[in-house]
């Protein structure tokens, strides 16, 4: 089956290699793409239907029923914000629909604090050739497809 992975944020889609963090740029935890978010306060939504299996203020993983894990990371090194500026709308273990608000944040505030607000969206442990239809270079709204994942 093909899983469509939607954008958790509005912005401009760029290659994962543009993320200023080697873990993401070198796809160490899986292939994917990144979104340079619009610099306005916004809700971050789930990219797929599934369950919130990992939840931090600045990052989360949604696992689909078939076990596909999609990681959304809000900015780089933002763990150092200790949750400041992030408002969670779900709890760990909660079932979510694609497009459902998970957390609110303000990319402009993150940037002003000295962090890159870029958002890597990663297909955890996926073979690189299982992803396709990348929307790299596109300007996306929340929920627009970022890539498809053959499973």
């Amino acid at each position: 089956m093909t899983l469509s992975v939607g954008s958790p944020v509005a912005g401009r889609v760029v290659s994962l290699t543009e993320v200023p963090d080697p873990v993401f740029a070198q796809a160490m935890v899986g292939p994917g793409i990144a979104v340079e978010p619009d610099r306005v306060a916004a809700d971050v939504v789930s990219p797929v239907d599934g369950t919130i299996v990992t939840l931090h203020p600045h990052a989360f993983v949604v696992a689909t029923e078939s076990g596909a894990g999609v990681l959304v990371h809000l900015g780089i090194d933002t763990v150092k914000r200790k949750g400041e500026g992030f408002t969670l709308h779900v709890v760990k273990g909660e079932t979510v629909r694609a497009g459902q608000a998970v957390v609110s944040w303000d990319p402009a505030e993150v940037e002003a604090a000295g962090f890159s607000p870029i958002c890597p969206v990663v297909a955890l442990d996926a073979p690189a050739d299982s992803l396709g239809e990348f929307s790299e270079g596109a300007t996306v709204a929340v929920g627009d497809q970022l890539f498809s994942w053959q499973r």
């Binding site: 873990v23 935890v29 931090h56 990052a59 993983v61």
Partner: peptide
């Protein structure tokens, strides 16, 4: 400190 994919 854990951060989703890594141990710092």
């Amino acid at each position: 400190e854990p951060c989703i994919t890594r141990l710092r």
